[in-house]
Nucleic acid binder design. Structure first.
Lengths: 204, 204
DNA sequence: AACCATTAAGTGGTCAGACCACCTTGTTGT
DNA sequence: ACAACAAGGTGGTCTGACCACTTAATGGTT
């Protein structure tokens, strides 16, 4: 398939498979560098390149003399590094924001089938919570929606995109948007969700 | 300052300063690994650990035999890698397949606005290409659609999900599905795309 | 038996050197 | 003038060697 793939990328892939196969959770220990090197038929330096990259992304935590451990996913590692290299492409920025919007829209639609009156009240409360900033409301609002979709994968992907887009430009919608969506939920009006997202006026 | 900081992190910092000091822009060349190693008083492997991490973040691009270059900032790389590790936490088969289907659906809708008659012929050709397996057709079909959306990020995310779902169960639709979608394109019938995806009979 | 110091083994951190594969450039020979 | 070849620079990779740190086993002292 990809004969030109570098070794460290292959190692990365293998490590992922290992984690999957052994069902490792945050805090669990990974094999030692030497052991990985031997089992994957790769030099230790190549293994380290993969591990270092993972570390910078905040995926693993490494403790001198002890070993390498799976860490709770902490995005600030990578975000920190990325923001220190202030390089931006307008095209990619749009891609990201657009993709994010699409996922939000789908979440709103999927949640439609799982939402009850109490949930609607909860959403209403978020929108009117004066202790939250505009952006925090947005995150809380959709986090709840994603929770309702019961699709953890979509939620994770969205969360990821949100973290990255935060670094570029924090996006939220006008308050009227959220209220309008709530109204659609209340009035059992599924078909207009699509339209709402397409015509929405984004604030800043 | 940071006595316990690892060498590769220091190198990372120095490289950033170098870029800043020389006002390097995307496409510009960085010093060679050996040169960096010498000037920063670090081993070449340490320099490489830093560079590999940067590469995974999408900050640099490395070309064998030529050198290392600053790249346009693309979140894709990191999103890709991060997703691959986030995915295994939410590896419910249904979550994955469902999310994938949603993205495919959205791609089909977005492509709707960018597709011309020639493109439709191309799609038609893919579906009737007898040299392709059912799964290969699926990949080729949607790869073309994603290309038309001009959103590389979505394409990558989908590709990633496809790779993962491959391990679970290779999913493709009945041939009639593809033909039906093509028909919708031909007849300028946008509104039924949604329905097509929701009522489709999957054939593994 | 309980305790603490020592030791050994395992692990990450780092470096140096050696090849290889690839690209560019300049030289050579026709 | 042109094509073929050669050399040097660059990333890609591996090996082996230390070092620093942690943990667990060891063993002797109290």
């Amino acid at each position: 398939m990809s004969p030109k793939q570098k070794v460290y990328q292959g190692v990365l892939h293998e490590i992922r498979k290992y984690i999957d196969a052994h069902d490792l959770k945050p805090g669990d220990k990974l094999p030692s560098e030497r052991e990985l090197s031997e089992k994957l038929h790769a030099g230790r330096s190549s293994v380290r390149e993969a591990l270092r990259a993972m570390e910078l992304l905040g995926l693993i935590e490494t403790r001198h003399g002890e070993g390498t451990f799976l860490s709770q996913y902490r995005p600030y590692h990578s975000v920190e590094v990325l923001s220190s290299f202030v390089l931006q492409g307008a095209k990619t920025k749009n891609d990201l924001l657009f993709a994010k919007k699409i996922i939000e829209k789908e979440a709103a639609r999927i949640a439609y089938d799982h939402i009850c009156d109490d949930d609607i009240e909860e959403l209403y409360g978020i929108v009117h919570d004066s202790t939250l900033s505009s952006n925090e409301k947005h995150v809380a609002f959709f986090q709840f929606l994603f929770y309702k979709t019961e699709n953890l994968l979509l939620a994770r992907v969205w969360q990821l995109m949100d973290e990255f887009s935060d670094n570029i430009s924090s996006l939220s919608y006008n308050q009227s948007f959220y209220l309008e969506l709530i109204n659609l939920y209340r009035s059992n009006n599924y078909s207009e969700i699509e339209e709402l997202f397409f015509t929405l006026p984004a604030s800043e």
